[in-house]
């Protein structure tokens, strides 16, 4: 599918969407640790040769296919639905519009419904705002934000990641890719003292730590293959699937050859918040287990009523 070179991903970041590390890092040691981890990632991005930061945000749900932020200067003041009392988040983000438009075309070439959004006042989601404010505060590097379609499942998400690779290769750009997502996402349903924040349950904490072991070992493809189990075990069922590892693996490369580093793991109002980096390397850990087919082209929902009979 690539028309020119291979895509070049310098490294990937997995980080949480909650606003505490941005708005109230001093409120607890845990939030402060997460903020320090974000700051470390920001330094690494600044020292890298990245041409673009690509964000896949689980707190930007879309319905009409996959939406791609393309407004050259996105300026607004965002307030979170739950944590509005922590304060406002004024932002100005600079988008790579050329990348956004090519990304849309490459999505369509691979069978995905996709469109760019270029509207003044468009509500950029909390997760994207937090990540970009902390990782790229001075807009040194242009960015692109991708939505997470609420109905999409594995094949669509894998293909979306591959469309990112196509676009990077076409434009010969080096990228840092960012997934904005919690690990376990169950929060406390009442207001708490931040100093007493903890992971909601022992089970969530156990699962989070197992996932962090995989990240630490650089086993991204293994995490991708485990996504359905992760969704069933530690994700509140708001959407059809846990998609971040699918997208990250399809975008960075579907293998386990990464140097993983868990910079912080803390509770965010009960949910699991981790700042993690994955850097492509030459080594590989363990045998990969591929339970599901790889996908190159999205062919839409399978119409089992029409096509279920043997011909």
């Amino acid at each position: 599918m690539s028309e020119t070179n291979e895509s070049e991903i310098l490294f990937g970041i997995y980080c949480p969407p909650h606003p505490q590390p941005l708005l109230s890092p001093e409120a607890s040691e845990g939030y402060s640790n997460l903020r320090t981890a974000y700051d470390e990632c920001r330094n690494r991005i600044e020292e890298s040769e990245a041409d673009i930061i690509i964000v896949y945000s689980t707190t930007w749900p879309s319905i009409i296919g996959h939406q791609i932020q393309a407004l050259e200067k996105a300026v607004w003041t965002h307030v979170d639905d739950d944590f509005h009392y922590l304060g406002s988040m004024p932002y100005e983000f600079h988008m790579d519009t050329q990348f956004a438009h090519s990304m849309k075309e490459n999505c369509q070439k691979r069978g995905l419904e996709a469109r760019t959004v270029e509207y003044e006042g468009f509500p950029i989601d909390t997760g994207s705002v937090v990540a970009l404010q902390l990782l790229n505060p001075d807009n040194r590097i242009p960015t692109c934000i991708l939505s997470s379609n609420m109905y999409s499942n594995r094949s669509e998400t894998i293909v979306l990641g591959k469309a990112v690779r196509d676009t990077l290769a076409q434009q010969n750009k080096k990228a840092v890719v960012v997934v904005v997502s919690s690990l376990s996402n169950r929060m406390f349903t009442e207001h708490i003292d931040p100093k007493e924040d903890r992971i909601h349950s022992q089970k969530d904490d156990d699962w989070n730590r197992k996932i962090l072991e995989f990240f630490d070992d650089g086993r991204l493809e293994d995490l991708s293959q485990l996504s359905r189990d992760i969704h069933g075990q530690i994700r509140v069922q708001k959407v059809v699937a846990y998609k971040p590892a699918w997208w990250l693996a399809a975008t960075m490369g579907q293998h386990n050859n990464y140097d993983g580093e868990v910079l912080a793991y803390e509770a965010l109002h009960g949910s699991g918040g981790a700042v993690i980096t994955l850097t492509p390397s030459s080594g590989s850990v363990g045998d990969k287990e591929f339970d599901e087919d790889d996908v190159e082209f999205y062919r839409g929902d399978r119409n089992v009523l029409d096509k279920g009979m043997l011909e």
Partner: peptide, 9 residues
Amino acid sequence: KSVDPVFPN
């Protein structure tokens, strides 16, 4: 201004 995140068009 309210901009619909799903149907901004």
